[in-house]
């Protein structure tokens, strides 16, 4: 069943890239979910689309070749910084930054798409993901991003967890909350740009949040939740990519449906194993 994935080079690149984003998307997603920022990923993915559309527009009109991955990444990172700035402006209504950036991203995308004379298949692939769109160049870039992200998360793990759990305590104890938060949001932007090739703009946030939602039901402790969501993420990517390829369905759809199946299973499993017990007082 896996034979095609080893035989054809483009499929191999897709498969390996899928394995990489199966790690980094739930890894960042763990922090996104516990900080209640699940919609952040959606906002950033739409900004990424604007960057990709901009790249396609330049390519079509002026034959200036910007790799769409890099265009998307640049827009996504700028968008993430803008969200942080907006959250500072609207301190009492921080969530308003998300619809502002999301609609801005969609608006810009539409403008660039129509300037580039409309939709094409390539754009369709960016919206829903594709098994055949990953070039060797893309794979190498995404591998670089993945290594960078895992390295940064490892180095700043304790600060990120401390800040996510209790921002006030973290600040009082002398952690630079603002800088760590900016670092975190830029990493999120990079993960989204890297994942879009395979899962697509519309569904990238699902790969960041659904495996986490499932592992949250079962894990004991933060680290365990993180590893379990990576396991779920990988399962979803592997099953989703293979079934998507054989059924000729964009992998975004199959990966998300596998994630939802895992989520439902974890809820059922928790129900079956959960016994009501009285919490003893200390």
């Amino acid at each position: 069943m896996l034979a095609d994935f080893f035989e054809y080079e483009f499929l191999r690149h897709t498969f390996l890239t899928g394995l990489l984003i199966g790690v980094i998307a739930p890894l960042l997603g763990t922090f996104i979910v516990v900080r209640r920022l699940s919609l952040l990923a959606d906002a950033l993915s739409h900004v990424t689309l604007a960057g990709i559309a901009f790249g396609l527009f330049l390519d079509k009109k002026f034959a200036v070749g910007i790799t769409p991955l890099y265009g998307g990444m640049a827009f996504s990172v700028v968008g993430s910084i803008l969200i942080e700035k907006l959250r500072g402006v609207y301190q009492a209504y921080q969530e308003i930054a998300i619809p502002i950036i999301l609609s801005g991203g969609v608006g810009l995308s539409l403008i660039f798409i129509s300037l580039a004379d409309g939709f094409n298949t390539e754009l369709f692939n960016y919206l829903f993901g594709s098994v055949s769109a990953v070039s060797k160049q893309d794979f190498l870039s995404i591998a670089g991003i993945a290594i960078f992200i895992v390295l940064i998360i490892t180095l700043f793990y304790k600060e990120l967890v401390t800040l996510s759990f209790d921002e006030e305590h973290a600040t009082v104890s002398g952690i630079h909350a603002k800088r760590i938060h900016l670092l975190f949001i830029v990493l999120t932007a990079l993960v989204i740009a890297a994942s879009i090739r395979i899962v697509g703009v519309l569904l990238v946030s699902a790969l960041m949040t659904l495996p986490v939602a499932a592992s949250m039901r079962l894990a004991r402790g933060f680290k365990q939740m993180m590893f379990l969501s990576i396991v779920f993420g990988e399962l979803a990517v592997i099953i989703g990519l293979i079934s998507g390829y054989y059924l000729s369905i964009p992998p975004g759809g199959t990966i998300v449906m596998v994630s939802i199946a895992i989520l439902l299973l974890s809820i059922v499993l928790k129900r079956l194993t959960w016994k009501p017990r009285k919490v003893r007082e200390a």
Partner: peptide, 13 residues
């Protein structure tokens, strides 16, 4: 989802 150990370790960050 943090264990007691994890929460206390945050004090050392």
């Amino acid at each position: 989802p943090a264990t007691v150990f994890e929460v206390v370790s945050m004090g050392l960050t």
